[in-house]
Amino acid sequence: MSDKHMETGEGHIGYPGYIGVFTILVVGTIFTYFSSFWDLDSIFPGANTLLALAIAFTKMTFVMLFFMHVYWSPRLIWLSAVASFFWLAIMFAYTMQDYFTRGLGVFSV
């Protein structure tokens, strides 16, 4: 903590920066709305959801880095942000490894 004090007073990207992030978020929202009409699932099942989630992750990253000032924050804040998603991934992965190996959520003829 001591090595990298959060200079919160300096920790922002200024007015244009905020508007820029905002624009990205709006574009992302509109894009995700319309991309949901494209039949990407014909490429592989779940491609639509994958794209939507990729956009959501991008939006989240921008909100966290700039609106929540993680970009200027000490390592510990980065760590806690990453760790929470890591633990979420543990919960998803280890629950789903059960369901998928039971064949319940698997496409079958």
Binding site: W87, I90, Y94, Q97, D98, Y99, T101, R102
Partner: peptide, 17 residues
Amino acid sequence: FLVWGHHMFVSGQSIYA
């Protein structure tokens, strides 16, 4: 956090899990 399934060995969890 990675071992909770050992409470569920006989409750219908898959063999692989």
